[in-house]
């Protein structure tokens, strides 16, 4: 770990092959992200982790750290772009935090708080998306999908089941279930699957346990999302 780069004026050590995101997180520096998960190969699609490297924009979850590089992340300009991206995610789906059981545990909501989002700013799309309640143990609420593909990667790469996929292109991209009927009940998905536990928002939910955790004890009641990187650093 003798190599270093500069992130917002701070010297960050890294090992060969590490991305900017991995090195920053290890050092306790938070870079906002939604589609990145340390257990999976980076996807680089949500673009929230965009940073400037030597003046050029790149996704920090996919960009490998290089000795001596100068990285900007926590700047008003980049955070304004992150905020706009987050607002677009909110209006693309139906994110009704007041009645969502993931409120307080949701990375999208926590990221919005972190970025100081006060309103969605853009016009809501209000898409008409049905829920899939066919599975006995799991509810799928597609209204909240942000297309991070974490469930796709988890089901394919860890569970070996390929239960989920992203279908369509561009603005029409949407999450589907790989079954002839399109219903989760007609797959071999179970609650033990890794894919059942990686959703950063409120799409894949264990049934009949909503709101079991009281306000004050939910993940982001205890600490803001920016503290997650510090927790990783402290664990080391």
């Amino acid at each position: 770990m003798s190599q270093t780069f500069i992130l917002d004026g701070k010297t960050i050590s890294f090992a060969d092959g590490q991305t900017i995101m991995q090195a920053a997180t290890q050092a306790g520096v938070f870079i906002p992200h939604l589609c990145y998960h340390p257990d999976f190969k980076p996807h680089g699609s949500c673009k929230l982790c965009t940073v400037k490297v030597n003046g050029r924009q790149t996704a920090s979850c996919t960009m490998r750290a290089i000795a001596g590089m100068v990285v900007e992340s926590d700047t008003p300009e980049i955070n304004a772009e992150r905020l706009a991206l987050t607002q677009m995610l909110f209006v693309e789906g139906n994110h009704f935090c007041p009645s969502c059981e993931q409120s307080g545990n949701c990375q999208l909501q926590a990221t919005a708080y972190h970025l100081g989002m006060m309103s969605p700013h853009f016009d809501h799309f209000f898409p008409n998306r049905a829920v899939d309640a066919s599975h006995p143990d799991v509810l799928l609420d597609f209204n909240r999908c942000i297309l991070c593909s974490l469930c796709v990667r988890a089901s394919r790469d860890v569970d070996g089941k390929n239960v989920f996929a992203l279908s369509g292109r561009g603005i029409k991209t949407h999450l589907i279930v790989n079954a002839k009927s399109g219903q989760l009940a007609d797959t071999n998905f179970t609650l033990d699957d890794k894919a059942a536990h990686v959703c950063p928002v409120g799409v894949i939910l264990k049934k009949r346990r909503g709101f079991a955790v009281p306000i004050g004890e939910r993940t982001y009641d205890k600490q803001p999302i920016s503290a997650t990187a510090k927790a990783v650093a402290e664990e080391r």
Partner: peptide, 11 residues
């Protein structure tokens, strides 16, 4: 209608 029942008391 069409929402899971455990969401209702909060909604």
């Amino acid at each position: 209608q069409g929402r899971p029942y455990w969401e209702v008391p909060v909604m």
